[in-house]
């Protein structure tokens, strides 16, 4: 009975009152000295027991109602098509300017505002997802742990166009992202979506840690690169003779590094909100794997049901009461009235 709960369990102490009807009948007492005078009648016995039972039932139901009986909220596991996703979002201050690298004005939204809008839609379209949100800038930060509460996911995504910080430490951000998958996220449906408008050199030690993490927890990796006008792109190769170093081409080298992890990996280069939207739509289509997620069915009060049932029992009792015939007031009494004298009121 773990599914039933009581708001005021102490009210259940009134339950013994339900025994009262077993001792007392709601019908008037008759002063026949003994019921031996009446022949045994199974029908009457059943009727009597029913009347007592109905009284007990009515009292018990009202007590249950008063104690606030309810069905507890239930979590049901549902299977859906979705994924366990870690959104790893760049919160460096460059995200607060537009794709044209200007301060956002009425006409053009900032990269972070576009990301916020499109990711909010993305999460809203995918009810079967569990999502964790992490941010990185100078340091990686956990925003919300893996959760299937879409309210929480929305609130976490809503904060990404708040003012950001200075740097873009992608490496440590990724290593935080790998750590956010919990035991509940099934291994076949894990994905990391990295949203950033730049890259940075990843420290050797962090590179090693990331390779370890990638070997341990295989995930699918998406990099949504919001390319600012004039900035270097993922696929920009240096001209012959120019040095090809991560310091000069961090985006190109991050792409190469992510490829080298041996994970299923896609990079999207978006030059404007439209392309971000297309990329997110594509991720949406790719990440449709069987997942289990929990849905909470909220608690349901049962007191109204208790009261209706009690009312039903009382209605039957009232019917019995109206059908009551006394030995001295009906013609039925005429045959049997040898033992009875006109009765006084019993109460």
């Amino acid at each position: 009975m773990s599914w039933i709960g009581f708001d005021h369990p102490w009210a259940l102490l009134l339950l013994p009152l339900a025994l009262l009807p077993l001792f007392v009948s709601p019908l008037r007492l008759s002063s026949v000295p003994s019921d031996e005078v009446a022949p045994p009648d199974p029908l009457s016995a059943i009727a009597g027991a029913t009347i007592a039972g109905l009284g007990a039932l009515a009292i018990a139901l009202i007590v249950f109602g008063l104690s606030g009986a309810h069905r507890r909220d239930q979590t049901v596991e549902r299977r859906g098509a979705g994924a366990n996703i870690v959104l790893l979002i760049d919160r460096s201050s460059s995200m607060d300017s537009t794709f044209a690298n200007r301060a956002p004005d009425g006409g053009e939204e900032s990269k972070s505002a576009a990301a916020r809008r499109l990711l909010t839609d993305f999460a809203a379209r995918r009810p079967a997802d569990r999502v964790a949100v992490a941010a990185f800038s100078t340091a990686p930060m956990l925003v919300t742990p893996m959760t299937d509460k879409h309210d929480a996911i929305r609130a976490a995504i809503a904060a990404i166009d708040r003012p950001g910080l200075a740097h873009t430490d992608v490496g440590r951000g990724l290593s935080l992202a790998f750590s956010l998958f919990d035991d509940e996220s099934s291994e076949t449906s894990r994905a990391i979506v990295l949203v950033s408008d730049g890259a940075a050199v990843i420290d050797r030690r962090v590179q090693d840690a990331l390779r370890d993490a990638a070997a341990r927890d295989p995930v699918r990796l998406y990099w949504l690169f919001l390319r600012t006008q004039g900035a270097k792109g993922i696929y920009d190769a240096p001209a012959p003779g120019e040095p090809d170093s991560p310091q000069v081409y961090p985006e190109r080298h991050l792409n190469l590094f992510l490829k080298s992890l041996g994970l299923p990996y896609r990079a999207f280069e978006a030059n404007g909100p439209k392309e971000v939207s297309d990329a997110i739509r594509e991720i949406d289509q790719l990440e449709q794997r069987p997942t289990t997620y929990r849905e909470v069915i909220p608690r349901q009060d049962l007191d109204w049901l208790c009261y209706w049932l009690a009312a039903g029992a009382l209605l039957l009792l009232l019917g019995a009461k109206f059908a009551e015939r006394r030995l001295d007031d009906g013609p039925i009494a005429a045959d049997w009235n040898y033992g009875a004298r006109p009765a006084g009121r019993a109460t």
Partner: peptide, 19 residues
């Protein structure tokens, strides 16, 4: 640095306490 905007406390308590 704002991590997340306000969210309802009862339904999202696990997310809040985790954060």
């Amino acid at each position: 640095f704002l991590l997340f905007e306000p969210m309802e406390t009862c339904r999202n308590f696990n997310a809040i306490s985790g954060a």
